[in-house]
Design a protein around this nucleic acid. Sequence first.
DNA 1: CTGAAAGCGCTAACAC
DNA 2: GTGTTAGCGCTTTCAG
Lengths: 324, 324
Amino acid sequence: MPTIYEVAAAAGVSPATVSRVFNGANVSPEKAERVREAAKALSFTPSRTARTLRLQSSEVIALVIPDIENPFFTALARGVEDVARAAGYSVVLCNTDEDHEKELRYLDIALSATMAGVIIAAAGGNSDLSGLLARKCPVVAVDRSPHGVDVDAVIVDNRAGGRAATKALVEQGFQRIACITGPSDVETATQRAGGWRDAIAAGPGFDGHERYLRYANFRVDGGAKAMSELLAMSEPPDAVFVANNLMSVGALQVLSEQAKLPPDTGVAIFGDLPFLPLVPIPITVVHMPARHLGVTAAKLLLERINGDDQPARTIVLRNQVAAV
Amino acid sequence: MPTIYEVAAAAGVSPATVSRVFNGANVSPEKAERVREAAKALSFTPSRTARTLRLQSSEVIALVIPDIENPFFTALARGVEDVARAAGYSVVLCNTDEDHEKELRYLDIALSATMAGVIIAAAGGNSDLSGLLARKCPVVAVDRSPHGVDVDAVIVDNRAGGRAATKALVEQGFQRIACITGPSDVETATQRAGGWRDAIAAGPGFDGHERYLRYANFRVDGGAKAMSELLAMSEPPDAVFVANNLMSVGALQVLSEQAKLPPDTGVAIFGDLPFLPLVPIPITVVHMPARHLGVTAAKLLLERINGDDQPARTIVLRNQVAAV
DNA sequence: CTGAAAGCGCTAACAC
DNA sequence: GTGTTAGCGCTTTCAG
């Protein structure tokens, strides 16, 4: 790898001048041209590492997500990416698998690589953002707001969404409405279940519904397992609210196997069913503005990177409820 | 951010000793302990940037893929990630969107950040790996092998897969078998179409089949658009081989809308239908070993990183053909 | 407008 | 076993 010194020698100028050429500072056109030629001849690429070390900051932002195989997060990632690149930043995607250790490791990397900022959909439980915060590394939370930490957040109203979904089921006349939600240490999961509980409580005197609540793992197999359990109950539910996209795939698979697909069973889901190729079935879906969440989070982060230091903001995006 | 100098001062040792402690070199237990305490007290994190600059290599590998929203690539990414982390490497995901400029930019970053290596599913056409190769940066191609470049590659036999899929359709007695494949400058697309052509030619005297060939964009909308066009022909096909997972979603959507789902229309697809929640429909699918591709590519890359310099290898993974 | 030189934080000889 | 020091490649005062 050639360095600016070699380019400088080849062009007959000082290293400083080479640096200036590559950073848009004032250099006489003639020398600038010589530098550019020399650089091309040597196929010189400035070392980002050295630059980062010198500048104490790089133009990359970390996007930390719990499940890269969930289309919700990849859509969100696209949103982040589009905004970031437009502003000249690169995005590195870090997959935590809902695992705090992995998460911590990635945050550590972000810090020690002096990245420009991080956008994080925190793994379950309380994430440790103290390191980042102490170093004033800009952070914005997305989808899940880390509890008790004072950072910008972009979220949706999970409780309202859960309530709306469940209410639709109530209004369709279902009597025993189950809820399959995510891990109990993930806030979005408990909030969506909270919405379900609200709607049940507001309904025409349903009782003992807690037995219809299941915590699962936010993935296809979790949804399937929970749905199987529910259907095996002595008095099985006649409807179900599933609190995320992937779990609803699992739940629908099980319903399909047992020939209990809607409209036999009422189904309402939180999040979009990705890549559904077939005939629409009558379910209620609370759409997630995945891409928009990413776009908004990225914009907020860029503002912080550019020095904005107003108090932490929380932006709540709307999710549309629709019957399919 | 504290540095080793501050830790050294606090612990009453030299910076070199601090460095040694963090790199597992020989240090007296007593001093090592003092260093660790001081480091903890200052919440010191070694600067990866400085380390990378000094060492001229970092422990991160770049995974460059054309579409992060395609579950095939995210599954592949998982494979890469699992192997890489087990070996102590971090993976940064770079999404090129089938765009050569973005791709080049990421390769440039990989180089100038002295990453340990790159795994690339090349965007359409010929990718420019010359920079990496010239600098001896380990590269392995996955899913798509860049034409005429001498690097390790992990692929599947696209032509055989396309042939098998189409053959199944022929054997089911379909007469006018269309093919929806990807961009004409993506090798996997043309190879799969080649397999389709093989099977047609080997069939019982089908003629003029080229009119049933469509190039689309490897995404849902591309598949839908192509399928619509095909169905609008004066003599529409009675079966279709769709050359990737996402396009087959679009194609099936269109077939569904027009009430021509299998078994009315014969359908064979290349790649797995992700998250299919509903009743199985009778289609033939050529499964892609997505995760396995990633795992294998990562292993190869690690070997290269560790100095293996035997001639470039190409590993062809099998894909199972199954009726669903 | 341009060059010399210091220094970002770390590691690896090289002495002791 | 431990300290001293040079230097990885770049940017940026500070002089001129």
